[in-house]
Design a protein around this nucleic acid. Structure first.
Lengths: 145, 145
DNA sequence: CTCTTAAATAATAATAAATATTATTAAGGA
DNA sequence: TCCTTAATAATATTTATTATTATTTAAGAG
């Protein structure tokens, strides 16, 4: 049994070709695709897959902790098979979303602690998003000037 | 001339009753309302205001830096007349959005610096959102058990 | 291996948030 | 006060997501 199938089974999810395809794509992707992105990619290899299935599958993955839903772009969700909480950076020009390596774990956990103390919230998770212009887009802009 | 009217004029925006009402409401609010929230509140006192106007107005406020658009809840935007970048915390139960007082400016600016160095992005702004359960909702849940 | 059944899927319709269009209205300078 | 241009209200449209339903399929039982 493949690793993906095993993962699904561990969470009590039936193993279907659609779920395998969606999880594999997400797992191997660095681009934090939206449901639409996933659908458009998979429709090529799985011509009968439906967008509703992509949404439902992402919901069940989310519910069982296989993926996290990101709140980076407004009006749509992006998905990440890296469930470890980590910050993102989005280019306001090309809209690409990147991870980065800076280790902010200590900072974030101390922020959590401090905020929790102050607000008396029990914090589940966070979304830390930076927005700016990526090197590529800056270069392009330079050329145009 | 009122302070709000002056603010609008400073940004080159015509002063209209709708804009005055929207800005005043946002400015005096701590709840980070959505466009819909704003519309529902203002329709009571301004019976002819339209939702499209609320959206257009928020866009022009955003474009001129009078308000910031927040990415906290998925599927909708929230607005804040406090344009200074600051983190938020949302209760996953009642969906209320709070500010808090912890001074994270130093942490955030060092994060920016570090991330900018590492990714070569020019960072404009960030959205720092924490999610969890507020004291009120925890208390309610306790009572139910 | 086949049968059974509950769950998953595809197709479609419906909803919600936001944007676009357009005719009308009003702000604010001449 | 009048004129021009931008803002507004009403409406239609688009986009993202969720709901509905009939059909199909995974996978456990026999």
């Amino acid at each position: 049994m493949t690793k993906t199938a095993e993962l699904l089974r561990e969470r009590g999810l039936k193993v279907t070709p659609q779920r395998m395809a969606i999880y594999s794509m997400l797992y191997s992707s660095k681009s934090h695709p939206s449901a639409e992105d996933i659908y458009k990619t998979l429709i090529i290899t799985n011509p009968t897959i439906s967008l509703a299935t992509v949404y439902k599958t992402l919901d069940s993955f989310k519910a069982t902790g296989l993926v996290q839903e990101l709140n980076i772009e407004n009006g749509r969700s992006n998905y990440d098979a890296n469930i470890y909480p980590h910050p993102h950076i989005l280019c306001s020009c090309c809209n690409r979303i990147y991870d980065f390596d800076a280790d902010l774990d200590d900072i974030l956990s101390s922020m959590r602690r401090e905020i929790s103390k102050q607000t008396d919230f029990i914090i589940n998770h966070e979304q830390i998003n930076f927005y700016g212009f990526c090197p590529d887009c800056r270069k392009k802009k330079e050329i145009l000037n």
